[in-house]
Amino acid sequence: MYVAVKGGERAIDAAHDWLDRARRGPAAQAVLDTDQIRDQLAIGVARVMAEGSLYDPDLAALAIKQARGDLIEAIFLIRAYRTTLPRFGAALPVETEAMRVKRRVSATFKDAPGGQILGPTFDYTHRLLDFRLMADGELDRDDTDGTPPDPGAMPCVDAPAKPALPHILDFLNRDDLIEAAAPDEAVPGDLTREPMELPAERPLRLQALARGDEGFLLGLAYSTQRGYARNHAFVGELRIGTVAVEMDIPELGFAIEIGEVELTECETVNQFKGSRTEPAQFTRGYGLTFGQTERKAISMALVDRALRWAELGEDDQGAPAQDQEFVLSHCDNIQATGFLEHIKLPHYVDFQAELELVRRLRASVEDPAQEGAE
């Protein structure tokens, strides 16, 4: 056994060395810098921060580099690092209405106050490979005739963000056509410090969804649109921008700004015919995540609305997206990865026991007398 253990250690060390060489790539190539990952692979960085529950673009870029682009592995690294950090206190709730917006669209109001702001998005691009990106250097953004584009017609991605804009759904709220967004005065629990107990209140559900796997939530959200919960929704507003983070300092007696974060916020407008407890009105779904993660935010809002069936007095249709235990217990990709990937680790004793059982069962069928003798 000692020899086997020592041999295993040598094999593991060799695997680590091989991983380091594979991560580095050919020596003739330049080393991939974390600044490049942070700035040029910003969507991946945002996902790692959102599902890792830690807002730090530099560390998220480092995790992506270390994980060779495996985002779930990078999320695991970020969460593991997060557990080592001291906790000094809690920030005040961020005011998303004061967000400095760089993207803001609505599928419900064409002439929304403040206007539609397309921002940096793939929504209007052709899904064709751009082979110019394989060339060295940056893309030539000039027109084919050499004339630079009109700055007014082609705003720069790095243009200043718009000032604070009101939430679009507030205009529906004024006419009492949508449920009021009444804030919960109770201090919400912290999913990262206390285990979740089911059934969970909405604040904890939203925390779990914000940390949940984007692909899993996307599949659940899609299922609600296909009839599994009859969750027909409109994007009332999708906004991306930066908000100030403030913290109350007891020694000072007032709150101070300690930084800012980039967020994606989605509010959906959902059809609702009324129920035994609520009048006919529109209802809301909500999603809020770190960085530019709009697919995740929209998915989160749809699943949030599906999970609210009980509080709105709706009937349980038995849809997966309506089942708290199913959604909240399986949306976390780190838990799922740990349970899934553990089966590739040694299970020699377990398998030998199963193998012996199968042999005995087969032998008993082939020789019934042997079974009686036993």
Rank of each mutant, 00 (worst) to 15 (best):
L220D: 08
A221W: 12
A221Q: 03
Y222C: 08
T224S: 06
Q225W: 07
R226N: 15
R226T: 15
G227I: 14
G227V: 13
A229S: 13
R230N: 15
N231A: 10
N231K: 01
H232Y: 14
A233V: 11
A233E: 07
F234T: 06
V235D: 09
V235G: 06
L238S: 02
R239M: 14
R239G: 10
I240F: 09
G241R: 03
T242V: 15
T242C: 08
T242G: 04
A244W: 10
V245W: 05
E246P: 01
E246Y: 00
E246H: 11
M247C: 03
I249R: 05
I249K: 08
P250M: 05
E251N: 15
E251T: 15
L252M: 10
G253S: 06
F254Y: 10
F254M: 04
F254L: 00
A255T: 14
I256L: 09
G259E: 04
V261N: 03
E262R: 09
E262K: 09
T264M: 08
T264D: 10
E265K: 02
C266P: 02
T268E: 07
T268D: 07
Q271S: 14
S275C: 08
T277Y: 01
T277G: 01
T277M: 05
T277R: 01
P279H: 00
A280E: 14
Q281A: 12
F282G: 15
F282P: 03
T283E: 01
G285R: 00
G285S: 07
L288D: 09
L288C: 11
T289G: 05
F290T: 14
F290I: 13
G291W: 11
G291F: 12
T293S: 13
E294M: 06
E294S: 07
R295E: 14
K296M: 07
M300T: 06
M300L: 02
M300F: 01
M300C: 00
A301C: 14
L302R: 08
V303A: 03
V303S: 03
R305E: 15
W309I: 13
W309N: 13
A310L: 03
E311P: 00
E311S: 10
G313C: 05
E314R: 06
E314P: 00
D315I: 01
D316C: 07
Q317Y: 12
Q317M: 15
Q317P: 08
G318K: 02
P320W: 05
P320N: 03
Q322Y: 08
D323C: 05
Q324F: 05
Q324N: 05
E325S: 12
F326R: 10
L328V: 05
L328R: 02
S329A: 13
H330T: 11
H330G: 07
C331M: 09
D332E: 00
N333F: 09
I334T: 14
I334V: 15
A336N: 11
L340Q: 13
